[in-house]
């Protein structure tokens, strides 16, 4: 069975490696500051014992007050997983890209940008994935009708 790691424990570890990055944590998730996503992701990928080598899923949700970006990470070596989250403001949402760590983020970040409007700074090809350039708005936002 893939073991879901306890969010609070991971949060404690992350605080040790990347200070002042954790905002909150729960049973299976850790919420971090949007600016520190890349450092936290690098920490999770490279720290022995964690080694999250596989980005299972990257997506986002619009909660009207903020947009939440969700990273579901898996370690194939240890067969465990954790959910990393970050919240960015709706007016000018921007999160650092994790493509340099996981190539699998390439299309997924472009998809989140296309449908939710979150910009991923440092992505080598930050273009819409499905819709055409010039399309107005981001359809997966809750106020898009």
């Amino acid at each position: 069975m893939t073991k879901p790691l306890i969010g609070q424990e991971i949060a404690r570890q992350i605080s040790g490696g990347v200070p002042q990055s954790v905002v909150d944590s729960g049973q299976s998730w850790v919420l971090v500051q949007p600016e520190s996503v890349l450092q936290v992701a690098r920490y999770l990928k490279t720290t022995p014992g964690l080694e999250f080598d596989y980005l299972t899923c990257l997506t986002g949700t619009d909660y009207l007050d903020y947009i939440e970006v969700v990273y579901i990470l898996t370690s194939m070596k240890h067969n465990h997983s954790v959910v990393l989250k970050t919240r960015c403001n709706r007016e000018k949402p921007e999160v650092p890209s994790v493509v340099e760590l996981w190539r699998g983020a390439d299309f997924q970040e472009r998809e989140v940008y296309d449908l939710l409007g979150v910009k991923f700074a440092g992505h080598p090809n930050m273009k819409r994935l499905f819709l055409w350039e010039g399309f107005k708005g981001h359809p997966l936002r809750r106020d898009y009708l």
Partner: peptide
């Protein structure tokens, strides 16, 4: 692994990872 490949594409590259077994 790095590009989040899955299924037969991942396994053909020598990674023993199948959700039916792993999870």
């Amino acid at each position: 692994i790095n590009s989040s490949a899955a299924g037969p594409v991942l396994r053909a590259s020598g990674v023993k990872w199948d959700i039916r077994k792993a999870d």
